[in-house]
Amino acid sequence: MTEPIRAIYFNGTLTPSPGESHTDLLIEASAGILRQQGVEVEVVRAVDHALAPGVQPDMREHGASEDAWPELWQRVLAADIIVLATPIWLGDASSVTRRVIERLYSESGELNDQGQSIFYGKVAGCLVGGNEDGMKHVAREVLYALQHIGCTIPPQADAGWVGEAGPGPSYGDELDDGSRAGADNDFTKRNITIMAWNLLHLARMLRGGIPTEGNDRNAWKRGERFGFQNPEYR
């Protein structure tokens, strides 16, 4: 029997549970589509976990008194899809989201059985919310980091809602007419839907992994150069 596709969403809200999180509402709009297709979805509110700062897999080995990352990393390993969801503060992703990125980066030296980055075969995307400008800027930084460590980014892998520039309602806030801010925004609904389906399509396609030709770091270490030619002046 084929294993189900698994997705893990990291909510980068600054609000600990059980406090309300507008980012959670964006996550559920996306995750609901995946669940309908049989995807096993886990949502992690990162601020609820003692994530030590640093870029080592276990910061307890580098002076931290506690570090929840090693346990969370096992859940990332089990996932086919990784989504970072963040609010915008001062035009950037939240500090919590940055810490998750740093801890993901701490694992980038790990290789799979084929000598590739441990993130090969995982697809990634991001969700961005808030009530100030910067959605595309944040998505660019988040998606760059995720592809740099080895994740595969499908087309149109970001979505979000920021409303009007300046202080105002966040996604899901109740408005004076009883409606919810952003809930009926066609642009947001369309992008969330496209993103969710593209994540799923690519995760299914990559179930067999990525070919190793040209990206096997163990082979490179042994001297294989996969066609690379040094300039003649060397």
Rank of each mutant, 00 (worst) to 15 (best):
V123H: 02
A7Q: 06
E42F: 00
R98Q: 14
A157Q: 08
Q37K: 14
H201R: 14
I153W: 02
P231Y: 14
P16R: 14
L25V: 06
L14W: 10
D58W: 04
I118L: 14
W220G: 11
R103M: 04
G115V: 08
G91N: 03
M195G: 05
I210R: 15
L111T: 03
T188D: 03
L199Q: 02
N11K: 09
T13K: 07
R103P: 00
G63V: 11
L206M: 13
T2E: 15
T212C: 07
P57I: 02
I88A: 03
T15K: 15
Y171D: 00
A159H: 08
V96W: 06
N112S: 06
E110K: 15
H137P: 00
P154M: 08
G208T: 05
L111S: 07
I82D: 03
S106N: 11
F228T: 14
T212M: 12
A29H: 05
L72D: 06
D67G: 02
C126K: 09
I8S: 08
I192T: 12
V43F: 04
Y144S: 13
M59H: 00
C151K: 12
A181E: 05
K189I: 06
P154Q: 07
E213N: 14
T15Y: 08
Q116Y: 10
M59A: 00
D92S: 07
I192H: 05
F119V: 01
M135K: 09
D158E: 13
T23C: 04
I82W: 04
C126Y: 02
E110D: 11
I192A: 07
W89I: 00
V138W: 12
V128Q: 00
W73H: 05
D186H: 12
E110C: 08
A64N: 10
G182Y: 03
D67T: 03
G208N: 13
S94L: 08
A159V: 02
V123S: 09
W197R: 15
I5G: 01
Y233W: 14
D184V: 01
V39E: 13
T15H: 14
A64Q: 10
E132D: 02
V138T: 10
A219T: 10
G168M: 06
E164V: 01
A159W: 00
H148Y: 13
L84Y: 03
K221T: 11
W161M: 03
E66M: 11
I101R: 00
D177P: 04
R225V: 10
L143F: 02
D113A: 13
L34A: 10
A183H: 12
Y171G: 00
N11H: 09
Q36Y: 10
E102R: 06
